[in-house]
Design a protein around this nucleic acid. Structure first.
Lengths: 187, 187
DNA sequence: GTCTATAGATAGATAGAC
DNA sequence: GTCTATCTATCTATAGAC
């Protein structure tokens, strides 16, 4: 792997672990094994490097979810696969975490991939719920978009509560609770 | 208000806006109107000040929720009041946000009030759901603890999605979705 | 109690040699 | 492309005057 690639991957790790504000160019250089010169040759600075790293995180989020949404099984089965996917609950979501970072949200370029990723995933999940309703698999009273947003929120909030408790079990419980509620909407 | 008080309140604001890592002693001093000397006289340092500020945030979270949980109305009505309380969706939760801050989570003293606040709120909400089940207001199939965690997660995740979208409407939609699902469990 | 002065360390970036 | 040297500003804290 070349230096440029190492820099991006090390930045992804550090953004995940420490956020944008908490990550220094020096820390990135040390982890990637690249020097100052390398970093500033390949990227315009900390923000340029972060943009590349965040873009990859966002693309990953989309790719994984899309694979699960288009998998086999009923709508509820596919949603269950998505919600129950193994996640590193105590580390948090590499994309969702960025929403709590003041300097990411203040920079339109850095914020855009985050906004798009969640806009996409909630929209796509809403389509899936709508499909379930049309097929009679889910109750007609279910609001596809609101439910989709609530389900994604359970994941994002599940990370928060799991980190607060210091236990991944809390994340699993949040998902259990959401699926328990969704089950009642099944026909 | 004396300097000590000003320091704590300014720290609460800054922790909310910029997190612990993103808040410098200098910024606290400027906002509070206190100098270096004042700050280090009243507190042991940045972390000591943060401890006082986080403690107040955690106490606030508890006090507000407790007032809503013990209000009048059915269990579902009280939960609805709690979930629909007006919140500054784009600012995020003053307590939940801290779970994403690496230096807060790494310090046992700073982390404790956060852990306790969410442990308390999910536990209390679970009791309320259990009460609803006993009274026949909620379906027997409902898992009180898992549902409680899911509902609090919807709030915490609602903040994340609202900030990602740059719109408080997304927070409201998350709550709508959660209440829509919960409604099906009503007898 | 509060202020100013000071200090070592790090943040984030530039310059220029190789 | 990568490295080292250098730079200004800020971070966090201590010292000591008032």
């Amino acid at each position: 792997m070349d230096k440029r690639e190492q820099l991006i991957e090390s930045t992804r790790e550090l953004l995940w672990e420490r956020g944008y504000v908490g990550t220094s160019p020096k820390a990135i250089q040390e982890r990637s094994g690249a020097g100052q010169g390398s970093m500033y040759h390949h990227f315009q600075g900390k923000s340029g490097l972060a943009l590349a790293a965040i873009g990859r995180n966002a693309d990953d989020l989309r790719a994984r979810a899309e694979a699960e949404f288009t998998g086999s099984g009923t709508v509820v089965e596919r949603i269950t696969v998505y919600l129950r996917r193994e996640r590193d609950a105590l580390k948090g979501c590499p994309v969702g975490k960025l929403t709590q970072d003041p300097d990411v949200m203040a920079d339109a370029d850095l914020r855009k991939p985050v906004e798009e990723a969640f806009g996409w995933v909630t929209g796509r999940l809403a389509e899936l719920l709508e499909e379930g309703r049309e097929k009679g698999e889910l109750d007609a009273s279910l609001d596809p978009l609101a439910t989709a947003i609530a389900l994604v929120a359970v994941l994002q909030g599940g990370y928060v509560l799991a980190r607060a408790a210091g236990s991944p079990d809390v994340f699993a419980k949040a998902v259990d609770g959401a699926l328990g509620l969704l089950a009642t909407k099944e026909n």
